[in-house]
């Protein structure tokens, strides 16, 4: 049975997949199987996001299969990615 961790990320209880194309992202945490791009704010969002301060990033987590944007986070350098996961009774997601 397909369940969702986020609208963009599904899981069968063992393997996480891109909800758009089915590309396997691996076991939890699913972000390890995604492409991560840390973009400086001014690059990511244009002038409105250019605060004049370095060190803040828009982290993009991208499906390696179809290039859809699975999730974003605001982060500072060195901060770990947020870990979203389902708790399913039979197996780790």
């Amino acid at each position: 049975m397909t369940r969702f961790i986020l609208p963009t990320v599904a899981t069968d209880g063992t393997i996480c997949t891109c909800a758009a194309c089915g590309h396997a992202l691996g076991p939890a945490p699913w972000k390890r199987g995604a492409i991560r791009r840390d973009l400086p704010l001014a690059v990511a969002g244009g002038a409105a996001y250019d605060t004049g301060h370095a060190g803040v990033f828009l982290c993009q987590f991208i499906c390696p299969g179809c290039a859809v944007l699975l999730d974003t986070e605001t982060a500072m350098a060195g901060d770990a990615a947020l870990d979203d996961r389902l708790h399913l009774p039979a197996a780790a997601n």
């Binding site: 986020l6 605060t51 803040v56 859809v68 974003t72």
Partner: peptide
């Protein structure tokens, strides 16, 4: 310095 209105499902 930091955006605070986080996006959802790939939104900025």
């Amino acid at each position: 310095r930091h955006p605070m209105s986080e996006g959802l499902a790939g939104g900025y």
